[in-house]
Structure formats: C-alpha cells, structure tokens
C-alpha cells in the first residue's frame, strides 16, 4: 500500500553560509490511510516547518514529497493552492475562522475555491456542520460561539471538502482542558470513521491519545512508535 503522505529525505534550510539553519534535516516519513499520527516536538524542533511542508504551505529546499501519489515538492503556488484545497483539511490552534462570515459561509470557503455550485456547497457544508453537531448555529458569526464550538466549526470546514488528510496544528492549544478533551475525542471518532489525521503538538499527553507518535528534534525524527493497542 502506497503511503498517503510520503516525505523522502526532506531538507528545509533557511539562510545561507554560516548562518544556515536546517529546520528540517533530512526527514523521511510515511503516513498511511486511516492512521492517526501525532508529530511531537518542542518549539524550535522543526515541527512547524514539518507541518507547513506536509500542509503544502511551503516547499522543501530539497527532497521529495508525495501526497496521495502526487509529487508536490516542486509545485508552484497555484498548484499548491489546488492541492491544499483538495487534499488537506486544516485545523488550527487559533481556529482561523473569518469573523465577518457566518458559520455556514466559513465552512463553505474551501468548496468555493473548488468551484462547486452554491446549492451543492451549502448541502455539503450543512452535512459537515451536522457531523460536528452545530447544525443549529449555521447563521451565527464565529464570535458568537464558544472556543470549543469555534474549533468544531473549523473541523467542519476541514471536513467539508472531504480531503484525504486532516492536518491539525495544536487543535486543543487554545482550549481549556475539558473542551480540549472533547475536541480530541471528536478527532478520535473521525479517525475511527476512517479519516486520516496528522496532529502536531508539543504536548505529550495529547500525543498519547493517538495511534502513532513521531518525535522530532532538530529537524530529525528521533523516534516513531506505533501503538496499535489504541486502534
């Protein structure tokens, strides 16, 4: 089985000469369908760079990256935008909802950029909102919702386009522990339904909830343990 996410010897180097910084230093990683992986590292370990590359927000200095079978490491900005739109669902620490748009409109956004017709878009967005249990909030604005609800909206937005990979960057970081736990439970549930999730965190206790923990330090993977018992 080919890997959904396949990083091969990825380098990301900032600066030049003496001041050269290897944010990613020859990293290789494979993530398969239905996995729930946590990428764990302290700040400065390179996990953000890793997430940017996996999320196609950035391209590596060298190395190859196959996402869902396509080499995305040499794509231009426009092609990357299309990949982000179709292949990846982002969940951010700060939810990153657009405050001027309603909950439904926020969830519709990735579908708009995919060029899906208005009626189809609304249908899919409503389905996604239903999955996160916020059907009755579709006409509210983000600031009228609690932090936990906002994060669920952003999960709905990530799900709406039905991408093969969900990329969650510290999804519980801005939430209190109780709500954080709820969100995490929800992600687990999604994974049980078949969604592939890559979770980036610095928090071991959160990483422990996943099925596989990849630890990063200085741009290199230092450990990769699979905990099949969780599954």
């Amino acid at each position: 089985m080919t890997a959904l996410v396949n990083l091969r010897n990825i380098y990301k180097i900032y600066g030049e000469g003496e001041s050269e910084i290897h944010a990613l230093d020859g990293m290789s990683l494979e993530v398969h369908e239905h996995e729930f992986v946590a990428i764990v590292g302290a700040s400065g370990s390179g996990k953000s760079t890793c997430m940017n590359i996996i999320g196609c927000l950035d391209t590596p200095t060298s190395g190859e990256y196959f996402l869902n079978g396509t080499d995305v490491s040499t794509m231009n900005e426009k092609e990357l935008a299309h990949i982000r739109n179709r292949e990846i669902g982002f969940i951010f620490q700060q939810y990153n909802l657009i405050p001027k748009l309603t909950v439904l409109e926020n969830v519709e956004l990735p579908l708009i950029y995919r060029g899906i017709s208005a009626s189809e878009r609304k249908k899919k967005a409503r389905e996604a909102l239903k999955r996160v249990g916020l059907s009755n909030r579709e006409n509210k604005f983000p600031n009228q919702l609690s932090g936990g609800q906002q994060q669920r909206v952003s999960i709905a937005r990530a799900l709406a386009g039905n991408p093969p990979v969900i990329l969650a960057d510290e999804p519980t970081g801005a939430l209190d522990s109780k709500t954080g736990k709820e969100v995490l439970e929800f992600l687990k549930e999604l994974n049980r339904d078949g969604t592939t999730i890559i979770l980036i965190t610095h928090d071991n206790s959160i990483a422990e909830q996943t099925k596989r923990i990849v630890r990063i330090s200085d741009g290199k993977i230092i450990s990769d343990e699979v905990k099949e018992a969780q599954a």
């Binding site: 426009k78 739109n85 179709r86 990153n96 956004l109 950029y113 995919r114």
Partner: peptide, 16 residues
C-alpha cells in the same frame, strides 16, 4: 492579512 492567509490555506490561488 490573516484572512488572506486563511483563504490561501483553504486553497485560494493567488489569482483568487
């Protein structure tokens, strides 16, 4: 700026 970043992360091309 942040809104633009969000839109881009969701798949908006530079042209969009």
């Amino acid at each position: 700026t942040r809104e633009i970043g969000i839109r881009k992360s969701l798949g908006a091309t530079p042209w969009d």
